[in-house]
Simulated assay, not measured.
Amino acid sequence: MRNLPEILIKTRQIGWGAAKLLSSYYHGTAQDSHLDIQYKDNEPVTAADVAVSHYILSALQSAFGHQDFGYISEETYQSQPGKHPAEWVWIIDPLDGTRDFINKTGEYAIHIALVQGTRPVLAVVAIPEAQKIFYATKGGGTFVETAAGSQKLQVSSQPSIEDLVVVVSRSHRNQKLEFLLKNLPCQQQKSIGSVGCKIAALVEQQANIYISLSGKSAPKDWDMAAPELILTEAGGKFTHFDHSPLQYNTGDINQWGGLLASNSQDHINLCNLAAKILEDFVPE
């Protein structure tokens, strides 16, 4: 096992630097803050995505090199598709929640995860507008860092499924997900943008469940790898509906099927219930 605490120190520094750069685009103070919005597979990509991706990759590669580490970023993956052969692979999303970034909701994030094999062992999620960085290492717990210092985080305990709060997307919704949400016993919902921001809500005890359903497309490795470890090291769970773990750098970057993140107490029951509800779904 590599010295994860030592690697984390540098990664947190890179996370803060990336947050500062991304925030400068968000607030229009970057040297060239024109977003130059383009669309790739119906998803927006901005100049901020590209600039922050370059910053993170350059900083990580300068710090850790190529000999022992591989690199997968949302903005560079097309040039190097497939499973990366390295045992240790950085999986990076320089701007998760691009639509929220463009629409100025403030709910966008940066994801940096280090995966060993197919599972995350280190994660940093930076939320620039909150001026917070969430970080975790395998077996080391989850913390939130602000200008005031760091604090350990733990997911909440809730007495009943009916009282749970579900975080939902504003933009990534479809008929199947709407059917599932409508038929869950917990009907309290909180709309939040980036996956990183959703998981932050869980570990800061503002919500309890997040559900992702793939439709024509699916969330990607870089959407889930860092947020997953942030949640699980805070005591939560993040799995497929069949309780199997998410896996990364498998050669398919898509996370197909139903995924459920929770504060863990009723996790298996919630997964089983979600799968059962969807048995009755009939597309219109």
Results as ranks from 00 to 15, higher is better:
Phe134Leu: 15
Leu153Gln: 06
Glu233Arg: 04
Asn103Trp: 01
Tyr71Leu: 04
Pro185His: 02
Leu229Ala: 08
Glu204Asn: 13
Phe143Ser: 07
Ile209Tyr: 05
Thr105Arg: 01
Asp163Thr: 13
Glu162Ala: 12
Thr118Arg: 10
Thr11Ala: 14
Gly193Thr: 10
Thr137Val: 13
Asn263Gly: 07
Asp242Ile: 04
Lys190Thr: 01
Thr76Ile: 02
Phe281Trp: 14
Ser156Gln: 10
Asn269Gln: 15
Arg2Ile: 12
Ala261Pro: 12
Lys182Phe: 08
Ile9Gly: 02
Ala86Pro: 03
Ile56Glu: 12
Met1Leu: 06
Leu229Ser: 04
Asn174Gln: 11
Ala225Tyr: 10
Glu279Val: 03
Glu43Leu: 13
Leu22Glu: 13
Phe281Asp: 06
Ala226Pro: 10
Gly106Ile: 03
Pro227Leu: 02
Lys276Gln: 14
Ala261Leu: 09
His267Tyr: 12
Gly82Trp: 03
Phe101Val: 06
Ser160Asp: 14
Ala136Ser: 12
Ala234His: 05
Ile9Met: 05
Gly258Glu: 15
Gln131Asp: 15
Pro128Met: 05
His66Val: 00
Ser214Leu: 08
Leu246Ser: 07
Gln247Pro: 00
Ser169Gly: 10
Pro159Glu: 13
Tyr26Met: 01
Asp68Glu: 15
Glu204Ala: 00
Ile7Trp: 07
Ala148Pro: 00
Gln151His: 08
Ser62Leu: 12
Val121Asn: 03
Ile92Ala: 01
Gln67Met: 07
His27Lys: 09
Val168Arg: 14
Leu60Tyr: 10
Lys104Thr: 01
Leu246Tyr: 07
Tyr77Arg: 08
Ile127Ala: 00
Leu278Pro: 05
Ser53Trp: 04
Ala63Phe: 11
Asn174Cys: 04
Phe69Arg: 03
Asn208Asp: 15
Leu177Met: 13
Gln151Glu: 15
Gly70Met: 11
Asp280Asn: 14
Lys190Ala: 09
Asp49Met: 03
Glu129Lys: 12
Leu153Pro: 04
Tyr108Arg: 02
Ser262Ile: 02
Thr11Phe: 08
Ser62Asn: 13
